[in-house]
Design a binder for these strands. Structure first.
Lengths: 198, 198
DNA sequence: GTCTTTCTTGAGTGATCGCTCAAGTATATT
DNA sequence: AATATACTTGAGCGATCACTCAAGAAAGAC
């Protein structure tokens, strides 16, 4: 029941907590909140109920950790993209990246999936997803602002509006990519073309 | 157990089947598949379990009926819009309409919500939603084709591509509209502006 | 080796899930 | 009124849900 309380540890946990959170994130990402049972988690993480609850407290708490990991990984990836290719280059590369990365367990955005599933229930996790979506939008906004400052795009439209529109299109693209028999690459390329002509 | 089998009926059902399906559709639309329990349905439709199963067979079957009603109502609405305002007018009016209609129980598209929730489980209802999304896309495609034939928009891009992009943006718009604190009207207006300059 | 602290185990909790069915009730036909 | 047929009722089914906890196993401290 107590994980890592005292400094001198008689017995260390036999797992890598961070890896477990990543595995849980992948499961939740693909199957959603209600679609992921504790049996699923126990099987994927190879943990018995007791260990699971000692380590994470509850399914809800683990989902929250998974959401935060999802968001912070995404944020870091975009930041890296911006470091290497500039603000506009990052925004242009993102659409194709999110729908073609092979290691991701799903194409659709985990935040939007969570929001759609749980918002109607007033579930705390929906609010968390909502907050993280706002953070994402703010990051987009900052990049558009930099792109304008560096005169890479026109200043005709407010960065805030550009960011909102971009995020909306991106969410739509990622749903389209989740569908079978839809060539989302074409949509992504059009989206990027739209960015180029701003 | 037998509903409407013989012509001469000793006792007619006391409910309006179509209205029940609409009520169920609204519940499923907002709360999703797993998020809607039979207790919820029994309360909303004012039916005891026995009547429910006599009338609809199963929760899954009712959800299927609800999906079909959702899709056919949407299809008819768009057709009416086209009759009154032409193909381009219909496509231009749709975005603002779907995010601002007060009678709809949710902003996001029920088909996309169903797809996102159930696709990973290989659930039959996800396949149904997928089929209906394809039908919707086909309807968009036909309207874009008519708009080109009537020389309302350029023929530079294939109607199929225009339809796919439009549907993708619309799905994104509707998710954005579902969020709190997001002014989706601005996104919708931009989307419509994009259509005007095709 | 002994002790102490912590992690692991898994049978089992009450609650809720979708669903069944035997009994009761209502109505058109005769 | 009697009968036949079909709808309504609601207690309760087995299965699964997220979760608990007492007992056992492992490892650092001494």
């Amino acid at each position: 029941m107590i994980i890592q309380e005292s400094d001198s540890m008689p017995r260390k946990p036999s797992y890598d907590r961070n890896k477990l959170i990543e595995q849980a994130r992948d499961l939740f990402w693909t199957r959603g909140w209600a679609g992921t049972s504790l049996k699923d988690l126990e099987a994927a993480l190879k943990m018995k109920p007791g260990s699971f609850y000692a380590a994470f407290g509850s399914k809800e708490n683990l989902f929250d950790l998974a959401l935060q990991k999802y968001a912070s990984d995404g944020r870091m990836r975009l930041q890296l993209l911006s470091d290497h290719h500039g603000p506009l280059g990052a925004l242009q590369r993102l659409p194709l990246l999110v729908i073609s990365s092979d290691d991701a367990p799903a194409k659709a955005c985990m935040l939007s999936k969570t929001l759609l599933e749980l918002q109607a229930h007033g579930h705390p996790l929906a609010e968390r997803a909502s907050d993280l979506l706002l953070e994402m939008e703010a990051q987009f906004c900052a990049l558009f602002e930099q792109a304008q400052t560096q005169q890479l795009i026109s200043t005709a439209r407010k960065p805030q509006d550009l960011a909102r529109r971009f995020q909306s299109d991106l969410l739509g693209l990622r749903i389209s990519a989740e569908r079978n028999g839809i060539n989302a690459t074409l949509i992504a390329e059009e989206l990027v073309r739209g960015l180029a002509s701003l």
